[in-house]
């Protein structure tokens, strides 16, 4: 089942009488239970896509549906937990008051709201600050509250715009754990980032957006597998010294067979692979001539 379906979505902004195309014919589907990472350099159109999905801005052309409902309908947002980029919340409220406000907006019953509020505050390590006005919250605390309000009503789809932004390493690890937990619960997560290491750790699939165009979309597993350039075989020689042999993909089987025939002890075989960052940079680099020629 497609949780998110984006069809030929385009968005143009008018900046000083100039038309700027922020999103160019984007088509994308996100399946149930999938963790989808939306990668791209700054200004690639990641936030524009998310803003269209959450009805902050309207597409110039194309359409987007969430659970089969047009994304510009309020009803479509009922099953979304959304964390905006650099979130800001009513600063005259306390964290607990804001979560109560959020819960009521999602029609959560009063009976479960208080308990769930405490749960999410504890998960995001905000219990001690629960009754403090948001005016005094640091950027990291506000970001964590943003995650808390997204998790509160236990939706089926989470849309996070740069969820690690403003967080310290402990906070980042916490967010990664939350995303993994959501995956284990069968939830769908669509998140934007420009930090490839985050995607590598938590995502099932990744889409790369460059200048408003989706230039690559693949599973993280496949990207990592196709990025293998060769292998390093670690062996223990007859003089009990460790040696490393670098072989290409095609040579691997033959070399291993020969070593085994010679009774050489193979201690480890490590793939020499590109990481996701290399893939990301290569993909962006590949777009440069195309874009320049345009």
């Amino acid at each position: 089942m497609n949780i998110v379906e984006i069809n030929a979505l385009s968005k143009e902004y008018k900046v000083k009488k100039k038309r700027i195309r922020a999103l160019d014919n984007l088509s994308l589907t996100i399946q149930k239970g999938e963790i989808f990472g939306f990668l791209g350099p700054n200004g690639a159109g990641k936030s524009t896509t998310i803003k269209i999905l959450t009805d902050q801005i309207r597409a110039t052309s194309g359409s987007a549906t969430i659970f089969g409902i047009q994304s510009n309908k309020a009803e479509a947002r009922r099953q979304i937990g959304y964390l905006p980029e650099n979130p800001a919340f009513y600063d005259f409220m306390t964290a607990r008051e804001y979560l109560s406000f959020t819960g009521k907006c999602f029609n959560m019953p009063e009976s479960s709201l208080a308990e769930r509020t405490n749960q999410v505050l504890a998960t995001l390590d905000l219990l001690d600050a629960a009754n403090r006005p948001l005016k005094g919250f640091s950027k990291g605390m506000t970001q964590r509250l943003g995650l808390a309000q997204a998790l509160l009503h236990d939706p089926d789809l989470f849309i996070f715009d740069e969820p690690m932004s403003g967080l310290d390493p402990v906070g980042r690890a916490m967010v990664k754990k939350i995303i993994k937990d959501l995956k284990n619960k069968g939830k769908t997560v669509f998140f934007s980032t420009h930090i490839t290491s985050d995607v590598e750790v938590v995502c099932d699939r990744v889409g790369i957006l460059v200048k408003g165009r989706l230039v690559a979309i693949d599973s993280v597993e496949h990207i990592m597998a196709t990025g293998i350039e060769g292998y390093i075989i670690q062996i223990r020689g007859q003089d009990n010294k460790t040696e490393e042999i670098k072989v290409s993909n095609s040579e691997l089987n033959g070399v291993i067979a020969r070593l085994l025939a010679d009774n050489v002890k193979i201690e480890r075989v490590n793939p020499v692979a590109h990481n996701l960052e290399d893939f990301f940079l290569d993909t962006i680099q590949a777009q440069v001539p195309t874009n320049e020629s345009q």
Partner: peptide
């Protein structure tokens, strides 16, 4: 101006 509206209107509020 303070971007509160983004958080509020991303909920199912008309």
């Amino acid at each position: 101006e303070k971007r509160y509206i983004i958080s509020v209107l991303s909920m199912p509020i008309k």
